[in-house]
Design a protein around this nucleic acid. Sequence first.
DNA 1: CTGTTAGCGCATTCAT
DNA 2: ATGAATGCGCTAACAG
Lengths: 368, 368
Amino acid sequence: MKPKVTIEDIARLAGVSKATVSRVLNERSNVKAETRERVLRVMQEQGFVPSLAAAGLAGGRSRLVGVLTPPLTQPTVPEILRGVAEAIEHTDYEIVLYSTHAGQSPSTIVNRILALGLTSCLLVLQPGSLTPRLTQLATQGLPVVVIDDQGPAPELPSVGIDNRVSAYQATMHLIRLGYRRIAHLQGPSEFRCVQERYQGYRQALDDAGYPFNPSLVFNGTFETSSGRACATALASLSPSERPDAIFIANDQMAYGFLGAAEALGLRIPQDIAVVGFDDIPLSAHVKPRLTTVKQPFYEIGRNAVELLLSLLHAQPQQSVADAESGPQPPIRIQLPTRLVIRESCGALLLPRHQEQEHTVSEEPKSEG
Amino acid sequence: MKPKVTIEDIARLAGVSKATVSRVLNERSNVKAETRERVLRVMQEQGFVPSLAAAGLAGGRSRLVGVLTPPLTQPTVPEILRGVAEAIEHTDYEIVLYSTHAGQSPSTIVNRILALGLTSCLLVLQPGSLTPRLTQLATQGLPVVVIDDQGPAPELPSVGIDNRVSAYQATMHLIRLGYRRIAHLQGPSEFRCVQERYQGYRQALDDAGYPFNPSLVFNGTFETSSGRACATALASLSPSERPDAIFIANDQMAYGFLGAAEALGLRIPQDIAVVGFDDIPLSAHVKPRLTTVKQPFYEIGRNAVELLLSLLHAQPQQSVADAESGPQPPIRIQLPTRLVIRESCGALLLPRHQEQEHTVSEEPKSEG
DNA sequence: CTGTTAGCGCATTCAT
DNA sequence: ATGAATGCGCTAACAG
């Protein structure tokens, strides 16, 4: 193994004390410019790289951020992580990756993460059932940022999108295209984003003066299979009962819907127009190509890192702020989405749309 | 912040020395069963979690493995990482993730990794131009395992597939389906896997007694665009000159080929049959669905971790072994691939194939 | 088998 | 502005 160059080596070679070397390392101001230059030069020459491990130990805080993700093969994850990784890269922090998979108890992973002292903060994608535990850790002072969903109530600082507005725009798009009976396939109701998307759907119908028909709302699991199930259910309806469009709460379910619809002889978009949610990579390639709400996953990742680090650096004052103003609602950063229009909604069949893809954006008329 | 429970606390509460606690932690044999039980119980009660950072520092080796990957949005990466993550999870190591992206100098990332002392070993996906640097680090004693490609010569322990055999099978499949003029679209020639796939292609032609036609070999970049370029080139040929099938060295290029072929009026597989390589998620969904060689990415990830950890644990003896037998060729683990037959090769148009997907496997007649 | 003594490489008081 | 001393939490020799 290469003999590690230590601060001590640098100190000796530069003719200063270890403390001084440490000072230039941490960019303290109280070092004579001349001395600093000399030390820096020696560090260059020796290829000195400070040990993160030791620095963490000694300083009491490490420069590792724990990132906890669902399986990386889940289609929304890689793009988020790309944003996270690139944001981290501009800092002197590193990523410790914990990924969860199906048959694994949440406590296992949390215990593992608690092998902290390693990581000084936590970034969690889709916490799901971990939320209570995370909230607890957060109150104990561990900076935690959550991406995407945060359970029924927002309890932790988070980064994501405005699901309600996005769903509103998706539904409104269908309305403007002239569809009259617009169905909705939901995700699992325990997710906050599912409720919000549903609300956006409802509000769009209201604003358009459409009657709300509960029988047109279907429950899904966010998995492909429930898209298939939904398509099967619709196929069994008489043409007059059948909706002429559907807003599906994520792209995965939309794929299932598309596939089953084809097999069942339902033409998309002629018989039923479809709008999805997420815009994961496949969505531009399925047939028909999927109109969907694009989530800015990359930016979400970047913003989450920035938020997390800002929390981390604010740590010292936090307790003071808490004492002054009491517990504040956690910070929420919302990034804009856009509707990506492709084939499945039928818009491209109309004469006025000639582009391959375009986007719309529009706010709900009322807040609430 | 939660007051960290230290070994010292445990030692005091269990009425033993810190050294003993450390012994049960590291599962040393020389601890009286009774004492061990007591210590373990106290650790349970206190929710003690040892600090990886401190352990690494003190022990001289950390329990972090550095994983260096191309952008996570590259389609083959997530599945590999999933395997890596799950394998790591069964150990007491953790992953430190470094991901590279386009506009970034290799040295930057390597320097960053050298902020080692952090990580005790390195797993690198598609090292590319990093290979020399990695080789250097490896000779300095850093355990390094490479996934996929390793440059022109195998210089580092690696995990991957037998590209030659896989390409042979893909090409032979086309031959058996009766295609006579079989083209090949290569990747960038600096990659070893590209050469091997080419060799497999050549050998299949040889074994079948087909003449080799250099004008049917095209150079690509592994990117979608070169698939399009290739299709364009083929479209300009007269039907008699044009190949009736093509083996494309990765799925990304195959997508480009499929897309451009459709636009150019070339029917797949009627005019040209296509076989790809990788079987990334999209491949089952493009139209026509792509026949391709499936790489066992998940298993590759798992095996890479196992290899890396075995190297790490063998570290102490390594120099001895070297001295005895001189430098040995680096270990190479090769995992089996299988050909996934879908629409693009035309096999499903023939009467005897009724299944949606099936696989073939077959060895080259001769080695070399 | 177990306790004692030294550090690992660095940050952080104190001094000066 | 700089140096000396102390300790982070743990492992690794040593002794016993």
